[in-house]
Design a protein around this nucleic acid. Structure first.
Length: 484
DNA sequence: TGAAATGTTGGGGCG
DNA sequence: ACGCCCCAACATTTC
């Protein structure tokens, strides 16, 4: 009986899982393994929100493996040692995993693949995460893309090359070994759940796991994908897909999403016209991975090195805390930051607004924002997080120009005109009339007292939007003359 | 995937 | 009736 190990990582699903397919096709039995080794991902170890999601996604994966007569073997420790232990326990001679693209993980996986092959283990990696892997497209000068539109013009043509695969028919799972090695542990022993109950609302809002992903995808296709272009910018509408946490942990693949859209619309080859606006967003995710792979230092360094001499402000601990906790006194910003804290997610339009405030009005280095999002977002994804923050800070590829400073008042009035979103997350503003909901400080002191915001930051925000905007433009001018 | 300042136009009030 | 002014609405430019 030949045994193959599938090393699960950010691909916590059974369907459309190339490593699982390859293992099932090439051996009699398959052992499912997960290794907890956060230190190997330094400096971007999984954040608290990611760990919460991982815990539940792993539980769901284990349950569906058990329903098929197997189980998820969980180990903790050095990945290489854990793999060696699992190979010895199971007598496996081959090893399959799906690729990740974070710089630290690429380096680790490369070492592991070499040492495994030296030991005679048949080690293979596969693509489960992307439509177009970063090295498969290049400009005519054979360079990596730095602008989204030409990247996607090229990549979109290749996005349909691989169809998603079903759970392999021939899959025979191995139950957990009877004599577990010293690295083996239970899911609970990984300690992924937070010690403080900040995650109280998460279970009512999210259903991690492959089944939850399929349910969310089905709802999105039924309810929102056609109206996506119009509704996606309004944070009080459920007009976005909310698939991002599933994509980040791999309970769902972009191939599956494209295929589901295609099946529903039953059109010819190419993208469904109705879903075009949404598919373009998947394209941005591909672009972020392209950039992360070709410019791996950008997780901690400006892509546009001209910004290395930019005069970022020295963060004030109180102000940074107020931004994190949603206490700046600016309604749309506070609503977004509180949505993030309470739900583990933030609407994309609002992400841009809070990011602009931090990097432009406050002029704090984008790393401060990237770190906070990394810890609190259930959909934290190193490629998206890095490029998103560099984009809004103006330091990235195809970035928002330095002079593009979002005005949270105008953004609020445009995209949340009735203030539903702001009131949902900032209850202090419940009685502020629509007309002033995005700038309650413009009310007279009497009006402020009447709706209960006198003496709060909403009567006097911690940040002067107009003055800080002027200061930001001045600071950005200081690096304007420098070469790229 | 902006905002604000500046420029232009045209309708209507009014002497 | 006519010209003048005001200003809203829209367009263009600049940061």
């Amino acid at each position: 009986m030949s045994v193959a190990i599938v090393w699960f990582r950010r691909d916590l699903r059974l369907a459309d899982n190339p490593a699982l397919c390859a293992a099932a096709a090439s051996s009699d039995q398959v052992l499912a393994l997960y290794i907890h080794a956060p230190g190997e991902e330094t400096p971007w170890q999984p954040g608290a929100a990611t760990r919460w999601w991982l815990h539940h996604a792993l539980a769901a994966l284990d349950a569906s493996l058990r329903a098929r007569g197997g189980a998820l073997l969980i180990k903790r420790g050095d990945s290489s040692e854990c793999l060696r232990e699992a190979l010895a326990e199971s007598g496996a001679t081959s090893l399959h995993w799906n690729r990740r693209y974070e710089p630290a993980v690429i380096a680790r996986d490369q070492r592991i693949k070499e040492t495994m092959r030296e030991r005679g283990v048949d080690a293979h990696s596969h693509n489960a995460l992307l439509l177009v892997e970063p090295w498969t497209v290049a400009t005519q000068q054979d360079a990596p893309y730095r602008v989204f539109t030409p990247f996607w013009r090229n990549a979109a043509q290749r996005a349909h090359q691989h169809l998603p695969s079903a759970v392999p028919q021939s899959l025979r799972l191995l139950a957990a070994p009877s004599m577990p090695g010293r690295h083996t542990c239970t899911l609970d022993q990984l300690g992924l759940l937070p010690s403080i109950a900040w995650d109280a609302a998460f279970p009512t809002l999210w259903q991690p796991g492959e089944a939850g992903a399929q349910a969310r995808l089905a709802d999105f296709l039924d309810d929102s994908v056609d109206g996506y272009a119009a509704a996606r910018d309004q944070p009080d509408h459920a007009g976005t897909s909310r698939l991002s946490p599933y994509l980040a942990t791999g309970e769902l693949s972009p191939r599956q999403i494209l295929a589901a859209i295609h099946d529903r619309d039953a059109e010819g080859p190419g993208f469904s016209a109705r879903a075009q606006a949404y598919v373009r967003q998947l394209g941005w995710r591909e672009f972020c991975y392209h950039l992360l792979f070709h410019f791996p230092q950008t997780t901690v360094q400006n892509l546009n090195r001209r910004f290395d001499s930019f005069p970022w402000a020295d963060p004030d601990a109180t102000l940074l805390r107020a931004w994190q906790q949603g206490r700046t006194g600016i309604p749309l910003v506070d609503a977004g930051m509180r949505e993030l804290w309470h739900t583990g997610w933030m609407h994309n339009r609002v992400r841009m607004v809070v990011g602009s405030l931090l990097t432009k009005n406050l002029r704090y280095h984008w790393q401060h924002g990237a770190r906070w999002f990394w810890d609190t977002l259930l959909d934290a994804d190193l490629a998206n997080n890095t490029q998103g923050w560099q984009w809004i800070a103006g330091t990235g590829a195809d970035a928002a120009p330095y002079f593009r400073v979002f005005n949270p008042v105008l953004q609020g009035e445009r995209f949340d005109p009735s203030g539903h979103y702001v009131r949902r997350h900032v209850p202090e503003l419940a009685r502020v009339p629509d007309r002033y909901i995005h700038q309650p400080w413009s009310m007279s002191p009497i009006e402020q007292a009447e709706c209960g915001i006198a003496g709060t930051p909403y009567a006097r925000p911690l940040i002067d939007l107009a003055a800080s905007r002027d200061a930001a433009l001045l600071a950005y001018q200081s690096i304007r003359q420098l070469p790229d």
